[in-house]
Amino acid sequence: MATITLTVNGRLHTVDVEPDMPLLWVLRDILGLTGTKFGCGKALCGSCTVHRIRSGVATAVRSCALPIATLDGAEIVTIEGLSDDGSHAVQRAWIEEDVPQCGYCQPGQIMAAAALLAADPRPRDAEIDNAMRGVLCRCGTHARIRAAIHRAAAGGGDR
């Protein structure tokens, strides 16, 4: 067992788990933050995307492929922490464009899109495709994902 302390959505947590447990399962099964989804467990689908914050900069990471032992002292933001109330520019755009169908992949999509816009406030289609191709959607919300990212960019990301 390993004792790991990390910040999730601004709150400090200390967990006592097997060192190889991926962050995804710590979030879901230990901390009860089930907004981050399991899709493949192998960094292939993007459902589990969260932000790792380093020096104030958010990077999209696949939580299923991050052993908790590597995250002592890390700062993580999940979909539950992106905003308190769905008011993040990306979430608002997702609502305006009615992106979700089943919705299961959408937390991962939104986290990936938020990280993209934080790094590149005006991405073009090719950049959107490139940043978002790693997050699968089986329902086929692709066109609305593109539209929502453009909408969020036009409205000015708030990160």
């Binding site: 907004g35 905003s83 979430q91 009615d98 979700p100 939104i110």
Partner: peptide, 22 residues
């Protein structure tokens, strides 16, 4: 056209799918 009734829950990660049920 009417938005999905769960839209806001979905984009805030609050929807409980089967895997999220506890």
């Amino acid at each position: 056209s009417r938005s999905d009734v769960d839209l806001k829950e979905i984009v805030t990660g609050r929807t409980r799918y089967g895997l999220d049920y506890r």
